[in-house]
C-alpha cells in the first residue's frame, strides 16, 4: 500500500456526518457498516488496517470494534483486490442452474482460482452466498450491478466490458456520493 494519507474526500465526510445524525446521540457506532462500504469505495475496494483505524477515529470507537465487524461480514475485503471483484453466487438455485460451470469458466478464462486476483490487477474472483436473485439464476454481482441469467458467453462479454472500462468498481458506487 502506498504511503499516501488516508482521508475521505470532503463529499464522503459530509455524507458520513449526515449518516451519523440518523442515530441517537452517542450511538454513532451504528454508522460503522455504511462507513466501511464508503471506505472500500474510496480506498481501492478493500480495508487495510490503516483504513480501519481511520474509520475508528472518525466514529470515536476502538480499532478492535472495527476489525471484529469487518472480519464478520462477507462484503468487506481484508486483503487487496483487483479493480473489479467478480462475485459469483454459488447457492441453491444458482448452483442448480449452472453456477459451478460459470466459476470454472472464469477460472480458466482469467487463469486464476477462486479468491485470487489476475496478474494485471484487473479482476478478483469470489464466490458468494445467495444474492436474492434466484429467479434470474445464475447471477454474478460486480459492484452494485447484478448480471442475471448468466451464460459463459455473457460472462465473456461482461469481463470484456469491465476490462475496457478499466475502473475500480465497488459496491457503493461513487456516483451516489456525488449525487447527494
Amino acid at each position: 500500500m502506498s504511503k499516501r494519507e488516508i482521508k475521505f474526500s470532503d463529499e464522503t465526510l459530509a455524507l458520513i456526518q449526515r449518516i451519523i445524525r440518523r442515530y441517537p446521540e452517542g450511538k454513532q457506532k451504528s454508522a460503522l457498516l455504511p462507513c466501511l462500504h464508503l471506505a472500500q469505495m474510496e480506498f481501492g475496494g478493500w480495508l487495510a488496517p490503516e483504513t480501519m483505524d481511520y474509520v475508528a477515529s472518525i466514529l470515536k470507537i476502538k480499532p478492535i470494534e472495527v476489525y471484529e465487524v469487518a472480519s464478520f461480514y462477507s462484503m468487506f475485503n481484508l486483503k487487496p483486490v483487483g479493480k473489479c471483484v467478480i462475485e459469483v453466487c454459488r447457492t441453491g438455485p444458482c448452483w442448480l442452474l449452472g453456477a459451478e460451470d460459470l466459476v470454472r469458466h472464469i477460472e480458466k478464462k482469467l487463469n486464476i482460482t477462486v479468491g485470487e486476483t489476475t496478474a494485471d490487477g484487473m479482476f478478483t474472483l469470489k464466490t458468494v452466498e445467495c444474492l436474492a436473485a434466484c429467479g434470474n439464476a445464475p447471477v454474478i454481482q460486480v459492484g452494485e450491478t447484478y448480471h442475471e441469467d448468466m451464460t459463459c458467453e455473457k460472462t465473456d462479454d461482461m469481463l470484456s466490458a469491465y476490462r475496457n472500462r478499466n475502473e475500480v468498481v465497488t459496491h457503493w458506487d461513487k456516483k451516489h456520493v456525488k449525487a447527494q
Binding site: 440518523r22 451504528s30 457498516l33 455504511p34 466501511l36 465487524v69 464478520f72 462477507s74 468487506f76 445467495c130
Partner: peptide, 11 residues
Amino acid sequence: DLYVQPGGGAY
C-alpha cells in the same frame, strides 16, 4: 424520520 441502513453481507 425514516432512514435506510445497509448490512455487510451476512444471512
